[in-house]
Design a protein around this nucleic acid. Structure first.
Length: 790
RNA sequence: GCUCGGGUGGUGAAACUGGUAUACACGCAGCGCUCAGAACGCUGUGGCCGAGAGGCCGUGCGGGUUCGAGUCCCGCCCCGAGCACCA
């Protein structure tokens, strides 16, 4: 009977289904999420990494990432910015192609279906995406410009073709970029990668190594991502030193007095010249064996293998004759493909020396000081590095050099599902780039797209496609039959979004100047080195060509965390995958979004627990009931109002830091104050909370905003302001410590002086009993605490 | 091996520059409402001792700096991610 008079006690769950459907329809009808690209006064580009539209549908991890971006975007819009939040599909590549082969459906048929399903799920998620400017990398109107980007780099002289030892995946039957080889295995299928010599197209990204490294210091990116890039670029400063005709690379010239032999990589061109007659057969046999060994065994073998050439060279520092060996623990791809071995200071050299019973010479320095090193004895390691190189350089036997681990980017793939590389081979003219006017080079519909072992693309089986007249001389010519790496598709897509719809150019210069670089980019750290590095490279090149006026594409980047479940990353094989549709049906998008943001720090991810969502739903139900029950007249209660202003400040501070979990907690805390006991909240107390919740629960917020009498979208309303004066309380609780231990608190005016505070504290018997002697020292932190040291 | 994260209640996690450790939520327990349950609401909930007031101990381990350390420094252990024969 009491409860009938206390409607606030009865919190019924509201039905998210109809509410969310209503607002989805309203947003679409009113164009709420369409950005006025041309006329935006304060453009803000909020980008998220686009998904691969898999047949399984949207993954919770996608939903988590997109929601995190969406909240920030919606928040920025409520700050008065013109926010552009586009989303498209990264649909080319081996992933789609292999799946298509497995289920026996042509990718050209499968991908549009998958995209439709993704679009349906994404829309249910309540994202503020401007669907009028979506794209798919498989759309000819997109990939014609991917081909155009290739041609720009070609014009700039950064594209070349060469026969190279490349990573060949025997299962996927294609070449892989170094970045796609994880510990010697294909990142896609896990097969051991083989070495093959094939003609491949490369982008000369290594020319940009220094700049790619240096610019990192200027970027507002997650530190983990920057570190990953630095490691990948792998700058190391050292010297090239001549041991007679053999040039070695070392980062430790200071240890040259301990160099007891030289090692050449098996592929090193000087191996033959250094091999004596008696060793020739053994060396030849070793080289063959090394070439056959796949990269896996090569990179993990503990017992080092090798063979002596029989010849010696002179150690330029000591003048000693030292033997030349061949071993595959030295890599041809790095440095000069030759090293000086210092068993006393290098673990690998020591291992090798032990294996072949080579003499291990003395240690050449102790701690940081050189010993037994001729004229350099007594120098510190750092000084000796410079002095030794300088001394040898004077004799023309050394030079300081910088090496990078970063290799050129192999972009050709002997596969079907990608943009054909826009190159034509003519018997008369040679290699001819396809003229811009002939783009796109359309990918033909063929049914036999399965790759084979030949190392040649399936497109090479279709001469009706690859035979073309030469664009220059009109003579007999044939097309390049390789397609480009998927990572090229995604290395420039952010430039396209604002210009989607303009089929006359890849990106409109005026629009690009207005909208780029991207203000905020959010995505997974699994792309820390691949996608993000390639995007930076392409942007730098286009900048150098004067096509854009910035050289870094993403001003701010934050890597989101990973959602795990039952202690493990979600995966089909573990059976712990969450289907977003089920949660959207049961709980609604608003509760699902808010829960995903609440379960852990956005940049760390968290554990998805099925029951956890109920607390968030309860919070939204209470918000619903609070609006329904709120009284319309009264001004806010003073205490509630103070909490309200503290909450506005907290949520406004937390969202830009992507500290969404604590923002939600702050709103819940406020809700608890709002409805404490049998309190009926007042309209003036509830209305600002609806706005704070809006980025998280957009449908519910719109519904409540409408119920509160508004007729325009809540996302065009102004974010509530807090009054700093409201946050200053006259009366505060001062913590009192004795010897650093909390012993009580006293209620005092915020303006209290140290003397007053001490006398109030010592006058409190509960505190005084710990003050066993007159305080030796008093630490007073105004507004916070008082510490009496006795 | 190297680099980067991280270790806090039964659980997910808070604690911005050193200043009340465990906010918020889940779970659990008790109570209210109910014929009953669900839902909803209220109260409690780090450990130990104590009837209570209250006390002692507590942020992976061991030291240190400080009036005061989850936070800073040194040395370890464990978990996760990335790189890995890069000279």
């Amino acid at each position: 009977m009491e409860s009938a008079e206390r409607p606030s006690d009865i919190v019924e769950a509201y039905e998210p289904g109809p509410v969310e459907a209503k607002w989805r329809a309203s947003w679409a009808a009113r164009g709420t999420n369409v950005t006025d690209i041309a006329n935006a006064a304060r453009p803000f580009y909020a980008l998220m990494m686009f998904p691969y539209p898999s047949a399984e549908g949207l993954h919770v991890g996608n939903m988590f990432a997109f929601t995190g971006n969406d909240i920030f975007a919606r928040f920025q819009r409520m700050q008065g910015l013109n926010v552009f939040e586009p989303l498209g599909y990264d649909a080319f590549g081996i992933h789609s192609e292999n799946y298509a082969l497995k289920v026996g459906v042509h990718p050209a048929e499968m991908i549009p279906r998958n995209i439709a399903n993704f679009r349906r799920q994404l829309e249910r998620g309540g994202l503020m995406v401007d669907w009028s400017r979506s794209l798919s990398t498989t759309d000819p109107e997109y990939y014609r410009w991917t081909q155009w980007v290739f041609l720009q780099l070609y014009k700039k002289g950064l594209v070349y073709k060469k026969a190279a030892a490349v990573n060949w995946c025997p299962t996927d039957k294609t070449v892989l970029a170094n970045e796609q080889v994880i510990a010697g295995a294909c990142e896609r299928c896990g097969s051991m990668v083989e070495q093959r010599f094939l003609e491949q197209w490369f982008f000369a990204i290594s020319q940009y190594a220094e700049r790619l490294l240096k610019n990192l210091d200027t970027l507002d990116w997650s530190e983990t991502t920057k570190t990953a890039q630095r490691n990948w670029i792998g700058k190391s400063e050292g010297a090239e030193i001549w041991f007679d005709g053999v040039k070695v690379f070392t980062t430790r010239p200071d240890t040259i007095y301990g160099a007891t032999y030289v090692v050449l990589a098996p592929e090193h061109p000087l191996v033959g010249a250094h091999t004596t007659e008696s060793q020739r057969a053994a060396v030849e046999e070793y080289r063959e064996r090394a070439a056959r060994r796949d990269l896996v065994t090569r990179k993990t073998a503990k017992d080092k293998t090798g063979v002596a050439t029989g010849s010696t060279v002179t150690n330029p520092a000591t003048g000693e004759q030292i033997p030349v060996w061949v071993s595959d623990y030295v890599l041809m791809e790095y440095g000069t493909g030759a090293i000086m071995a210092v068993p006393a200071h290098d673990e690998r050299d020591l291992e090798f020396a032990h294996g072949f019973e080579l003499p291990v010479k003395k240690v050449v320095h102790e701690d940081e000081t050189l010993i037994d090193s001729g004229e350099f004895t007594g120098m510190t390691v750092n000084d000796a590095k410079k002095a030794i190189v300088a001394s040898l350089a004077a004799k023309g036997k050394a030079s300081a050099v910088t090496n990078f681990r970063l290799h050129d980017w192999c972009i050709s793939r002997q596969r079907y599902w990608g943009p054909p590389i826009p190159i034509v081979y003519c018997d008369n003219c040679g290699v001819v780039p396809v003229p811009d006017k002939d783009l796109p080079v359309l990918l033909p519909m063929i049914d036999d797209f399965k790759p084979d072992d030949s190392g040649i693309s399936p497109l090479a089986r279709h001469d009706e496609w690859y035979r073309v007249p030469c664009p220059t001389c009109d003579g007999m010519a044939r097309r390049e039959t390789d397609v480009s790496d998927t990572f090229l598709d995604s290395a420039w897509y952010f430039l396209r979004y604002p210009s989607v719809g303009d089929d006359s150019q890849a990106f409109d210069p005026t629009i690009t100047k207005k909208w780029l670089p991207v203000d905020s980019y959010i995505g997974g750290n699994e792309h820390a080195v691949l996608h993000l590095l390639y995007s930076r490279f392409v942007t730098m090149v286009l900048n150098d060509m004067g096509l854009i006026d910035f050289e870094e594409p993403f001003t701010k980047f934050r890597a989101h965390g990973l959602i795990i479940r039952e202690g493990a990353k979600m995966s089909k094989s573990k059976g712990n995958v969450v289907n977003p549709d089920e949660y959207l049906d049961t709980w609604g998008a608003d509760a699902f979004r808010t829960y995903l943001m609440f379960l852990g720090p956005f940049e760390e991810g968290g554990d998805f627990r099925d029951r956890g969502i109920s607390g968030v739903k309860r919070f939204l139900d209470r918000l619903w009931a609070s609006v329904r029950d709120s009284s319309t007249d009264a001004a806010p209660d003073a205490e509630v109002d103070r909490k309200l202003h503290a909450t506005i400040r907290k949520v406004g501070d937390d969202i830009p830091r992507l500290s969404y979990n604590t923002a939600v907690a702050a709103m819940m805390e406020y809700m608890n104050v709002l409805r404490k006991g049998d309190r009926v909240p007042r309209r003036s107390e509830v209305e600002p909370l609806v706005q704070l919740v809006a980025p998280f629960a957009p449908h519910l917020a719109e519904e409540l905003w409408e119920k509160l009498g508004h007729t325009t979208t809540i996302f065009d309303s102004d974010w509530p302001q807090f009054d700093a004066a409201m946050l200053e309380q006259d009366e505060i609780e001062l913590v009192v410590q004795v010897n650093g231990k909390m012993r009580g608190r006293i209620s005092v005016l915020s303006t209290v002086t140290e003397e007053e505070a001490v006398s109030r504290a010592t006058g409190d018997p509960a505190i005084a009993k710990f003050v066993t002697a007159p305080p030796r020292k008093v630490v007073f932190v105004p507004g916070r605490l008082l510490n009496l040291v006795v």
